[in-house]
Simulated assay, not measured.
Amino acid sequence: MASNRHASIEGTHLDTYGSPGTYPAYFGPKADDGETYGEWNPSEDTLLPVRGRHRVARQRGGTIARSRAVLGVGVFAAVGAGGMATANEEGASAVAGVDTAADEMATIPVLGDLLTGTDSGADTATADTATADTATADSAAALAEAPSGPAGVLDAGEALRTRLLQQADQQDANAETQAVTAAVQEAEAAAAEEAAAVAEAERAAEEERRREREEAERLEQLRASFTLPLNDYRLSTYFGESGSMWQTTHTGTDFAAPTGTPVKNVHTGTVTEAAWAGSYGYRVIVELEDGTEVWYCHLSSMSVSTGQEIVTGDTVGRVGSTGNSTGPHLHLEVRPGGDTAIDPLLWLRDKGITV
């Protein structure tokens, strides 16, 4: 066989033309005449030995694949150990070759760690590797829980299978819990939306009731702040009627009553006129806060003067038949903004007064 000596010139030989020449050492030792060449492996001794510390880096990542590999090796080891344990009631030590097989298995990476309880790569282990080791520890715990002895030998593979089934059941239970939690949260959200809708409907109903109460209060206040000019009367002529006594149509409403009946102010305001007014006879004009003028005509007497502030119910004069009149009555006119006359009855009813 070849040596690892330097490729120097060891001797001479004849070349193909019969001339003496040198014989290179890298062809191996020169054979004697008649000696046959043996098989020569150039990589056996010619390569320089590897010097220094060389270490194959432990592969990182692939946690799921490594966990499955470790778990698979553990399953095979458990099943094999269980088979050997059940094959002979006296234990695995009675089976020939078990010690040798155990020694061989101890030399296998990862599996040897499982059998000896050590980790040859502990200095480079990561958090993902710890997860796989935990699964392996669970498998080993399942094996340790199996009773031994001829009275009750529990198949180690069955114990490991039971543990795996328990883990699967636990995962299913967790998934079911998550589904139930999601359903509960969805139901709570729906209930919250329904409660919000009910609350909104109740709020709208309460708002409607509040508006109704405010309207009723407003009408009540109007009834209290407005009043009819006479307590006892008879409507003799209505707004808009035509006749020979008027140039166009009747511009007010006539309240017939005995002469001398007190005439009340229908609403708070200021007296702008209290005097004789031709065909209207004695007339009192009261201007309200919104500019509306209320005329009290054909009075027999007047109880107020110009510029006087009067309130609802104050007496402005007494019923008479002065001016263009055929009998004692109160001619009532209403002129918004002091302009065109409107129907006094509609105006009073709009203020909450029943006529």
Score class of each variant (00 low, 15 high):
residue 118 T to Q: 15
residue 176 E to V: 06
residue 149 G to H: 10
residue 222 L to Y: 08
residue 188 E to N: 13
residue 148 S to K: 08
residue 101 A to Q: 11
residue 83 G to Q: 09
residue 188 E to T: 12
residue 205 A to V: 10
residue 153 V to S: 14
residue 103 D to L: 06
residue 157 G to C: 13
residue 211 R to I: 09
residue 171 Q to W: 11
residue 149 G to E: 09
residue 127 A to Y: 01
residue 163 R to Y: 06
residue 141 A to K: 12
residue 113 D to I: 06
residue 217 E to Q: 11
residue 186 E to S: 14
residue 127 A to G: 08
residue 195 A to P: 05
residue 119 D to P: 10
residue 106 A to E: 06
residue 107 T to S: 03
residue 101 A to V: 11
residue 137 A to V: 03
residue 156 A to F: 00
residue 198 V to G: 09
residue 216 A to Y: 05
residue 190 A to C: 01
residue 170 Q to G: 08
residue 75 V to A: 08
residue 122 A to G: 07
residue 89 E to V: 02
residue 87 A to C: 02
residue 149 G to Q: 10
residue 124 T to H: 10
residue 81 A to F: 03
residue 141 A to T: 10
residue 128 D to R: 00
residue 91 G to H: 03
residue 141 A to V: 08
residue 125 A to I: 04
residue 113 D to W: 07
residue 155 D to I: 02
residue 132 A to M: 03
residue 187 A to W: 07
residue 130 A to H: 06
residue 176 E to I: 03
residue 115 L to K: 03
residue 150 P to N: 12
residue 222 L to K: 07
residue 108 I to W: 03
residue 175 A to R: 15
residue 154 L to Q: 11
residue 124 T to E: 15
residue 171 Q to F: 13
residue 186 E to M: 12
residue 196 A to F: 05
residue 198 V to P: 02
residue 79 V to A: 03
residue 130 A to P: 10
residue 139 S to L: 09
residue 145 E to Q: 10
residue 218 R to N: 08
residue 133 D to M: 08
residue 213 R to M: 10
residue 93 S to G: 15
residue 208 E to Y: 04
residue 127 A to K: 06
residue 219 L to I: 14
residue 211 R to L: 13
residue 212 E to D: 13
residue 87 A to N: 02
residue 131 T to L: 05
residue 180 V to F: 01
residue 100 T to Y: 11
residue 141 A to M: 08
residue 177 T to D: 09
residue 219 L to R: 12
residue 205 A to P: 01
residue 91 G to W: 04
residue 132 A to I: 01
residue 191 A to V: 08
residue 100 T to R: 13
residue 132 A to L: 02
residue 76 F to L: 15
residue 216 A to N: 06
residue 105 M to F: 12
residue 196 A to I: 07
residue 112 G to L: 09
residue 178 Q to G: 01
residue 83 G to D: 04
residue 198 V to H: 10
residue 182 A to W: 00
residue 91 G to Q: 04
residue 122 A to R: 02
residue 80 G to L: 08
residue 201 A to L: 14
residue 184 V to R: 14
residue 209 R to Y: 01
residue 125 A to V: 09
residue 96 A to H: 07
residue 177 T to C: 05
residue 77 A to E: 01
residue 88 N to E: 14
residue 176 E to Y: 05
residue 123 D to P: 01
residue 81 A to M: 03
residue 189 A to P: 05
residue 220 E to D: 12
residue 108 I to G: 05
residue 107 T to F: 01
residue 116 T to A: 15
residue 102 A to M: 07
residue 179 A to C: 13
residue 212 E to W: 03
residue 189 A to N: 13
residue 107 T to H: 00
residue 217 E to H: 05
residue 109 P to F: 00
residue 179 A to R: 12
residue 147 P to D: 07
residue 160 L to M: 13
residue 128 D to F: 00
residue 79 V to F: 07
residue 209 R to F: 03
residue 120 S to W: 04
residue 101 A to C: 07
residue 156 A to L: 12
residue 111 L to F: 12
residue 218 R to W: 06
